[in-house]
Design a protein around this nucleic acid. Sequence first.
DNA 1: AGTATTGTATTTATCGTTATTCTAAATTGG
DNA 2: CCAATTTAGAATAACGATAAATACAATACT
Lengths: 335, 335
Amino acid sequence: MARVTLKDIAREAGVSAMSVSKAINHKPGISAEKRAHILEIAAQMHYSPNLIAKSLRVNKTKTIGVILSDSSEMVTSIVLRGIQDVAQANGYSVLLANTDHKIEREREAIDTLLSKQIDGLLLVASALHSDADVTALRKLPIPFVFLMRKNDHMNIDSVINDNCLGGYQSILHLAKEGCQRFQLIGLVNSQSSMEREKGYAQAFRDCKIPPDHIFAAHTDPFIQSGYETMNAILAEKRRFDAVVCGCDTVAIGAMESLLEHGLHIPQDVRVIGYDGIYLAKYLRVPLSTVEQPLYQMGSSGMEILLDRIRFPDMAVRKIVLKSELVIRASTHLAE
Amino acid sequence: MARVTLKDIAREAGVSAMSVSKAINHKPGISAEKRAHILEIAAQMHYSPNLIAKSLRVNKTKTIGVILSDSSEMVTSIVLRGIQDVAQANGYSVLLANTDHKIEREREAIDTLLSKQIDGLLLVASALHSDADVTALRKLPIPFVFLMRKNDHMNIDSVINDNCLGGYQSILHLAKEGCQRFQLIGLVNSQSSMEREKGYAQAFRDCKIPPDHIFAAHTDPFIQSGYETMNAILAEKRRFDAVVCGCDTVAIGAMESLLEHGLHIPQDVRVIGYDGIYLAKYLRVPLSTVEQPLYQMGSSGMEILLDRIRFPDMAVRKIVLKSELVIRASTHLAE
DNA sequence: AGTATTGTATTTATCGTTATTCTAAATTGG
DNA sequence: CCAATTTAGAATAACGATAAATACAATACT
């Protein structure tokens, strides 16, 4: 089936293509009855405007690009949904690129998306930290917003949660529960995780936890890596009564390992995660975690981007969203 | 920053725009040294081809549309990832539309995506079942593939798992475990769920389970609805020793309710889900389920669509993927 | 040598829209 | 009543790319 164009309708209605365009877009310069007539014919012929042609002409695609590591992870899929909803509500589409945490794929993705003439870009937990990368980003012909990524750059919009505070709260809670020896499992290559670690450090000072009661490890943000890392840690036979994980998936893997080794959670070890995936509550041991407003992270990010597209000179916005410590059985023994 | 076009490079290199096009696309009809020269200048000027313009000219966008209910659900996010990976590997982009199970939004989404001139369409668990809807789909100017949706239509490609068999296997397993009274919780408005129920019915006949030992309920595919439905069921004080859920999320909610009512899983009641979300293993009670090859569902669907785009006359393909019964603690007591 | 052949490069036209300019008719006003 | 103004609508050009036609030069062949 050949697609029907403005010209087809124009021919059918005996007017010029321009008149059809005006009628359909409710632009002035055409009489009411002619407009009605044209619209009727357009409907009859099932006209569907070719937005590609329009985009080329007006140099706007009403499409924004989203770059993230893995759209199927529970954390990012929620953020993405927030992005999508705001986009859809404003007549924008989203083009997605998965990087699987590969920095080179992130750079490629930007090029690909630019070629597709996106009007703006959202970078979720971007790994582009080097000066060269940031400079390159600044030269982009379109606005962009950082999501879930530390941002102390001038003139770059961003939405994050206060990772430092979140980290601080986790430790404080565990200390109150009586924990004294802490096994940390941070995330490799994650600025967010580093921020959380700053919060841990502050809390350790405030709670007078001696450095030799703190053990640090790092791993990838997957269940399996949490599991393996915890196996390795247990093999070293250090004593600890708290495990502080860089994200919930690592915590799931770590708990699995702990349970397999016959340890009881929270009696022998307390475990806390970070992120607030919505299944945390339903795990073998319900997981305490620092809940980030994931959906809102996506939706605010998209809102800022849209504002920036409409008003390029708008003041820079660096939104810091509140996270919430959620206490469950993995750190707290119900009496 | 103004974007640089073919013409800009042509001017700089002292050649025609056409020559630049040939050089960049590695088309014949240009000498090696001129090509090298042009490519060098293009790189210098950071040329990025305008794919919108190209799309308009060649009438192909290298973009496919995906319509699904909710990209943040664990099941669909995996399917989507399979789709994305195959798309990306073949130089295609994906435009997404969430319908939240609303049939009207599904119809709108098709129009929107068509306007964006997608080259093909993937319908994941589409709710468009009426003759009118299917007829409309057939009239689309682009190919489409059904995913996770019953398809007994001529000439429509699809990828599904054998829901009937999966359902059959669940019941057979529970019967072998000694269950005698079955509470079913199917999904409303889901053809897949209906197919599974056919499988249940067959298994009940084969296992000689009398109809008055079978109780049916239906609900939405969310944790919360599973929870509420199970609460309602328990309020009716019927006796049953097996709960068969239409999807894993419903099973999670149902188990939550059962546990809150002091019942033991699997000792008092066995619970089985469907789908095989990857966290099933880590739940409070590890959940037995029929594992669908979700990622592969997406990737094969995308592959078929790409083939169909390239070879419109290719024979119709209706792929039925094998599901696998995974037995965990929710239906089987480890001795 | 003169024609045929090959290959390189340019020119032209086009995809479907919309911004802009232009024409002609309708309306206004003095 | 006729110039001045407004307005509906048509015609033209352009967005950036590429397919097709054309022009031209260099080589090969009879």
